[in-house]
Simulated scan of single mutants.
Amino acid sequence: MLTRIDHIGIACFDLDKTVEFYRATYGFEVFHTEVNEEQGVREAMLKINETSDGGASYLQLLESIREDSAVGKWLAKNGEGVHHIAFGTADVDADSADIRGKGVRVLYDEPRIGSMGSRITFLHPKDCHGVLTELVTSAAPGAHGDAHAATDQETHE
């Protein structure tokens, strides 16, 4: 069962400049950064709030590190803006199977590792009224280490 909006993914050309905009304009601070080589992105998660199910809601800012990545291709075609919406779930495997059974194309046969050690999959935008939709099961608390330490370390690599 989907429990919350986990994050909204925003594609950008310059991650640092976009982070600064959200910090200066709205007061949002970076909670976590990482490079996902498999997906070809550098990302920053800006925490918006805690949620009643123990999770949180974030803005995920995504900068392509390769032109051939999904985000790189999307930016080339559409420019900056909302890339996807992600819903939190306690069981990405069960929910993606249930949704697949309703005729919606699930893009990964098996969930992959996403931000902060989460497990993720995506639903085809053509089956979701034009919206690329992600399903996310967060990693257990502490399973991915201290997010703030990861931010400092990964930002300076």
Rank of each mutant, 00 (worst) to 15 (best):
Y108C: 00
D95Q: 13
V92Y: 03
G103S: 11
V104Y: 03
D93K: 14
T89D: 11
L107Q: 11
A90Q: 14
V92C: 09
I85H: 06
R105Q: 14
V82N: 06
D95R: 05
D91C: 12
R105P: 03
A94G: 05
E110L: 07
F87L: 14
G81Y: 00
G88D: 08
G101F: 12
R100A: 13
T89K: 06
A86P: 00
A97N: 11
T89G: 07
I85K: 05
I99M: 04
H83M: 02
L107W: 01
V106I: 11
H83G: 00
E80T: 03
R100V: 01
F87N: 09
F87T: 10
H83E: 10
V106G: 03
K102R: 15
A86S: 12
E110T: 13
R105A: 12
R100L: 05
A86C: 14
G101A: 10
D98S: 13
V104W: 01
T89L: 08
G103H: 09
A97Q: 12
H83N: 10
D91G: 13
K102F: 02
D98R: 15
H84M: 03
H84K: 04
V82R: 07
I85M: 15
I85A: 13
G88H: 09
V92D: 06
L107D: 08
E80M: 07
V104L: 04
D95T: 14
E80F: 03
A97P: 03
G101I: 09
D98C: 10
H84R: 05
G103V: 09
H84Q: 10
V92R: 02
S96N: 02
G88P: 07
G103E: 09
G101T: 08
L107G: 04
S96Q: 04
K102C: 05
G81V: 00
I99Y: 01
V106A: 00
G81I: 04
G103D: 06
L107R: 10
R105I: 05
F87G: 08
V82E: 08
E80L: 00
F87I: 12
D93A: 13
A94D: 05
A86M: 07
F87E: 11
A94H: 00
A90G: 15
E80W: 01
D91I: 12
R100C: 00
V104A: 00
A97Y: 02
G88V: 08
D93Y: 14
G81E: 05
A94P: 04
G101K: 10
L107A: 07
G101E: 12
A94E: 06
V82S: 06
F87D: 11
L107E: 09
H84V: 04
G101D: 07
F87W: 14
